[in-house]
Write a protein that binds this DNA or RNA. Structure first.
Lengths: 249, 249
DNA sequence: CGCCCCTTTGAACCTGATCAAACTGGGTGG
DNA sequence: CCACCCAGTTTGATCAGGTTCAAAGGGGCG
């Protein structure tokens, strides 16, 4: 019945036509936050765009540091590697979030960044960004806030890994995703996981089997519905309670 | 026999007389790294000094953010607290290291900082530091490196907590202390722990009993000697091997 | 000297890991 | 169109590292 619309002419890729910061839906979450129009245009002037397909690396440990990256479309994971080869995912990055700040201190990337899905990033050459710092104080301020926020974020991961039991970690993970989706205008209770169970387990310091069991358990308890990577949080308040350490249900 | 010297006249506190950055032994590790003499004096101009006695807080979660602090004498621990009250130590800070960077993003301190021993800090009002950034590019650059280094440090804590077994964590902890003492001109193999076993356990995501058992085990294996808080690493290479994941001895 | 806190050591327990096998769903090629 | 395949996932059974609970052992400070 619905055959004709399926064969419609290909749409123009509107994103490809307008890629400036001011037209980007993330500009109030991203680096240009708080800039006025002329300032934003100056920032735009130094920014390049780059596509990264699923599973591809944006950068790898040891790469020379040239640019920071802001996620424009898609999602990434960053991971560190032990001398003995063990990998640890240190974070998942959504649209508007900045990647590569750990590279500033050594001029060398200290982690791997891999796209979880076909993605697009804004490439921000750091040397040119530094030049702008002198001219746009608001930009410098906000940059400091972003770095500081990254430090805080990592601290809460440390808290999670050092202090929480499996269920609490997983609940905290879901609640965190939920609020980040909400901040981007998406549903806080229904979303698709972009990472595999293995990624989740690695990030949370748990095995893939544990993640699977936790999903089953929470599903049985009616806190969520799950089908493949599609998640629906049917009892977000209870999940928040779990995440903050409330034991009994 | 040795009675007379015990009653000697009190020495002048030389530190109290000369507290400028340029006279500080840490200035090549600390914020003023790389500054020339006049620049260092300008930085000095905004810095105050403050004593913090053992167990006292330098700042607490929720305190308004005004200043960054550089450890001048002594040692600190920083910890986060869960909604449910669980505490997690996120780091130990030695001389020359900067405290408070996580507060920039919210203008509110996000962790507690407590002195492990009687200590002294340099208080760096952030608003005035920001003014200097515009005038001393070297200072800004180095500040970015310091923040970035903190991000990297935390990433390695995440790696430690997410991926390592107890023994490996503890070895990594000792090796880390060792190299930081070495960087400050102290022995890399013989030093005093400033923190309690409980602090160590908390930091490493282990219990105090586990720490105690690990100390006993490594002692029995001849990798270290321990008497109270005095530690001697008698086989640093082997400890490094343990820390990087070499299993068998 | 005695008290108290920190630490060490022992024994039982439990959470989450490991090992193993079955299942699912989406894509591929016959 | 369907059988197959394969990666990712779920579920079960067993195992082990580290926790918990308990008690004894030091060391420093008043």
């Amino acid at each position: 019945m619905n055959q004709a619309p399926l064969r419609a002419a290909p749409l123009l890729d509107i994103r490809a036509l307008r890629t400036s910061c001011s037209s980007c839906s993330m500009h109030q979450l991203c680096l240009p936050m708080g800039l006025d129009e002329p300032e934003m245009q100056r920032l735009d002037g130094i920014i390049g765009r780059r596509r990264v397909s699923r599973e591809a690396s944006l950068y790898r440990i040891g790469d020379k540091f040239v640019s920071l990256y802001a996620v424009r479309v898609g999602q990434f994971k960053t991971s560190q590697t032990n001398p003995d080869g063990a990998r640890q995912i240190t974070g998942f990055q959504m649209t508007g979030e900045l990647l590569g700040m750990d590279a500033i201190s050594t001029d060398t990337h200290q982690c791997d960044a891999v796209a979880l899905e076909d993605s697009e990033v804004c490439e921000i050459p750091f040397a040119r960004l530094e030049e702008l710092f002198g001219e746009i104080p608001t930009l410098l301020r906000h940059f400091h806030r972003i770095m500081s926020k990254e430090i805080t974020r990592e601290q809460s991961v440390i808290l999670l890994l050092g202090n929480m039991r499996a269920e609490q970690r997983f609940a905290a993970f879901l609640v965190n995703l939920s609020s980040r989706y909400a901040a981007r205008g998406y549903s806080s209770t229904s979303f698709q996981l972009r990472m595999t169970r293995e990624d989740i387990g690695n990030y949370l310091g748990l095995t893939i089997e544990s993640i699977s069991r936790l999903l089953s358990k929470l599903k049985k308890e009616g806190l969520l519905k799950v089908s493949n990577r599609q998640i629906e949080l049917t009892d977000l308040p209870m999940l928040k309670a779990l995440a903050t350490g409330a034991e009994a249900c």
